[in-house]
Design a binder for these strands. Structure first.
Lengths: 204, 204
DNA sequence: TTTGACCTCTTTTCATCGTCAAGATTGGTA
DNA sequence: TACCAATCTTGACGATGAAAAGAGGTCAAA
């Protein structure tokens, strides 16, 4: 935590400061309002300083996406781990963690799952969603331990699609536009419960 | 179809030409590569000409989004209408139409359901997804004619979330990355079938 | 037919953006 | 201590969205 005046010519930890201010800026102004120069201003640094830490704007965005996926999987894992009982309940837990992260970081979440993210990542060869996929596949496999690979894959498709679709539509205002946050959580849990039930049922 | 040389000082139908070239550009370069000046170039017109038809870039994008929603509902309706039998089958048909539009217009589809779209539309007060919501609510109501309002709302949430989530994840490459188009359609239909079955089952 | 108002398009200008090149400053190391 | 590499600043370039001002074309009223 450097106070504004406390630094001289060198910043000290500009790379980290840019990640922080960039993330804030992304949520404030959206992807189209995201500007490298504004990131620099918020970090109280000249407009060309970021170039020494990120080769381009896409490079900074790629870092934000990378960290976003790490946090997303952590959030899912945390929610799932606090549930001891049924694997199906853990599947709901994954969804709760997924939606919690998305609700807390709507713009970043959208960026992570946008075509722009693919364009950005393709230069770096990274596929950040693999952690999410693995985490979910593992829990689905618990629920459907005795099912065929195809059934399990389709159940994983279905589970991911439901939780991703629900929170995406909520963030865009298409679902629960005037609902209270409380009521919305109830609707989300209902969707997750229906999803888990469908996955369980696909066993037979 | 005006040939390049066939026009004089006036374009004739620049507004429509900008919509066409803008839509193409959006799919070619993505939302972050979308440029008013490039739209103008593709319409073979000076960079300031669009201002007389669209007050700003957001204005043009809003028009693209508006038309996108009209086409999306039309595509859903067309697929649903060709199915005569069970209401549940029509629900799957809606999903097929939904995914077909999204697959044919991936960038536009993402824009329609992005936070940027909300930002853009809020200036125009338009909520383009209402047609989709109504269409789907109607079919869900057929399937669940005797259910309570809450059950029907949750079924509608669930149905929309599943089809939206699935196609969104496909477009981003998270589902079926190396699948053939044929295999992917099968996976999509499986997800839609599971969704319809769950909706039907929620009746009791 | 003439005229004049109005639309459409172009040219010019301005502030801002991403990126690059060159120079200033600093901290560590030999 | 003296150098060197990393860090940051300044200045420049081309591109962009938007606004202003002027040129070209259309069309209806006189």
């Amino acid at each position: 935590m450097t106070t504004p005046k406390a630094r001289g010519y060198h910043h000290g930890d500009l790379r980290e400061a840019l990640v922080v201010s960039g993330r804030k800026l992304l949520e404030d102004k959206g992807i189209r309002g995201f500007t490298l120069r504004e990131c620099a201003r918020r970090a109280e640094v000249s407009h060309a300083a970021p170039a020494h830490h990120f080769a381009s704007m896409d490079d900074l965005l790629a870092e934000l996406v990378r960290r976003g996926f790490a946090e997303l999987t952590a959030s899912m894992k945390a929610e799932a781990d606090r549930i001891e009982g049924e694997p199906a309940a853990r599947l709901v837990g994954l969804g709760v963690g997924y939606m919690a992260f998305a609700a807390a970081n709507p713009a970043l979440f959208q960026l992570m799952f946008s075509r722009e993210a693919n364009r950005i990542e393709s230069k770096h060869g990274d596929a950040g969603a693999d952690g999410v996929r693995r985490l979910q596949a593992a829990v689905v496999d618990e629920v459907l331990a005795h099912a065929s690979g195809e059934v399990r894959q389709r159940a994983a498709d279905f589970a991911w699609a439901t939780m991703h679709g629900f929170i995406t539509l909520v963030l865009e205002g298409e679902i629960g536009g005037r609902d209270s946050s409380r009521a919305l959580k109830t609707r989300g849990l209902a969707a997750l419960a229906a999803m888990a039930e469908t996955v369980v049922r696909s066993a037979r």
